[in-house]
Simulated assay, not measured.
Amino acid sequence: MVKHLWNKYKAIIAYLFWGVVTTIVNLVVFQILSPGLHWGVILSTVLAWVAAVLVAYFTNKVWVFGSHYTTVMDTLVEMLRFFFYRGVTLIIDIVITYVGIKMLKFDSPLQQFIVKFIDNVIVVIANYIFSKWLIFRNNRGIER
């Protein structure tokens, strides 16, 4: 029973685990740069995104979706798709961050953290949908 459930949901469990790791990377980098070093909110968001996407690509490729591309061209196309769709969610990330922190004035360190946490939950869900159905769809034997 447990083995059956594990096999059925292992991609989702792995995605959630690595999504938490990626979210932690995003939040830590953002907190260091924006409230910590007083860098701009948007620049801090973009740099936190870059760090998180690098972690996400390799963990998603290997441990979540089991991508088996071995040629340079196939891997490059996959990576470009991954970064493109992560770019789409970066726009979502920037909009939520800007609205929450700049427009709604949630600008104390705790309020910024809460805005970024909520933002990351939305982004992780969107990223899973993009990854499962648009990025890692043609190169593995994982059930849909």
Score class of each variant (00 low, 15 high):
126 A>H: 04
81 R>H: 11
115 V>W: 00
61 K>T: 10
74 D>K: 15
73 M>L: 12
46 V>Q: 07
129 I>L: 14
17 F>W: 08
101 I>K: 03
78 E>N: 13
58 F>H: 11
20 V>D: 07
17 F>A: 12
17 F>M: 13
91 I>F: 15
10 K>W: 00
29 V>S: 11
112 Q>L: 14
15 Y>Q: 05
45 T>S: 15
25 V>C: 10
103 M>Q: 13
22 T>A: 15
4 H>A: 13
25 V>M: 07
79 M>S: 10
17 F>Q: 07
122 I>M: 15
40 G>S: 13
80 L>N: 13
91 I>T: 14
3 K>V: 06
46 V>H: 06
47 L>P: 02
11 A>G: 01
91 I>N: 04
99 V>M: 02
72 V>R: 14
124 V>C: 09
88 V>M: 11
90 L>E: 02
34 S>N: 14
125 I>C: 13
11 A>E: 09
53 V>S: 11
115 V>D: 03
57 Y>N: 06
73 M>F: 08
90 L>Y: 10
9 Y>I: 10
33 L>Y: 04
60 N>Y: 05
112 Q>A: 14
1 M>H: 06
73 M>K: 14
129 I>N: 05
127 N>T: 08
20 V>R: 09
8 K>C: 01
16 L>F: 15
12 I>K: 12
95 V>D: 01
69 Y>A: 11
117 F>K: 00
105 K>L: 12
24 I>Q: 10
123 V>H: 02
41 V>I: 13
102 K>T: 13
28 V>M: 12
52 A>D: 05
28 V>R: 06
10 K>F: 06
99 V>H: 03
41 V>Q: 01
21 V>R: 00
111 Q>N: 07
100 G>E: 02
91 I>D: 02
112 Q>P: 10
116 K>G: 02
107 D>K: 09
97 T>D: 09
15 Y>M: 07
58 F>C: 05
123 V>P: 00
144 R>I: 12
33 L>H: 04
67 S>A: 15
13 I>R: 08
21 V>I: 15
80 L>H: 07
122 I>G: 12
31 Q>E: 11
56 A>C: 08
110 L>W: 11
140 R>M: 04
8 K>I: 02
10 K>P: 00
15 Y>A: 07
51 A>G: 08
121 V>G: 09
133 W>Q: 01
96 I>A: 04
7 N>D: 13
34 S>L: 01
100 G>N: 04
75 T>L: 09
24 I>E: 09
116 K>P: 00
94 I>E: 09
124 V>D: 01
67 S>W: 03
63 W>A: 06
64 V>R: 01
109 P>E: 08
91 I>K: 02
8 K>R: 15
127 N>I: 05
21 V>S: 12
77 V>P: 00
109 P>A: 10
123 V>S: 02
19 G>H: 01
66 G>R: 06
22 T>I: 11
45 T>N: 14
120 N>H: 11
82 F>L: 05
89 T>P: 03
94 I>R: 13
61 K>M: 11
92 I>V: 15
32 I>A: 04
103 M>G: 00
140 R>P: 00
42 I>V: 14
82 F>G: 03
19 G>T: 01
88 V>G: 01
36 G>Y: 10
46 V>C: 10
48 A>L: 11
16 L>T: 07
67 S>L: 08
61 K>C: 10
17 F>N: 06
84 F>G: 10
39 W>D: 02
50 V>Y: 08
116 K>V: 13
19 G>F: 02
2 V>L: 11
99 V>A: 03
25 V>H: 01
52 A>H: 04
70 T>Q: 13
23 T>W: 05
